[in-house]
């Protein structure tokens, strides 16, 4: 039980609550809240010394954020 693992679990739980029930119930608020469990998972991967998994996870998170931003932009343009 390293401190990274405990802090990662706490941030992951807070982030899951924040992404599941965002305060302003909009797509943008949920997308910003989705960053927080990513950081919690990053700390848990750090506690197990999985360096390559950490780098891959951060890169894929950036690309999937770009895809989601394009999707939200298209949805708001259609309305």
């Amino acid at each position: 039980m390293t401190p990274e693992f405990i802090l990662g679990c706490i941030i992951l739980i807070i982030g899951v609550i924040a992404a599941g029930f965002p305060r302003p119930m909009t797509y943008l608020g949920r997308l910003i809240s989705l960053e927080i469990p990513g950081f919690g998972l990053l700390l848990i991967m750090l506690a197990y010394d999985e360096m390559l998994a950490l780098l891959t996870f951060i890169g894929v998170t950036a690309i999937s954020t770009f895809v989601l931003v394009r999707a939200i932009e298209r949805k708001e343009a259609a309305e």
């Binding site: 802090l7 706490i10 807070i14 609550i17 305060r23 302003p24 608020g29 809240s33 927080i36 950081f39």
Partner: peptide, 13 residues
């Protein structure tokens, strides 16, 4: 933890 709790409670984007 301050940042994580604050990100949930803030209303402004």
């Amino acid at each position: 933890l301050i940042g994580a709790v604050s990100a949930h409670l803030q209303r402004d984007r």
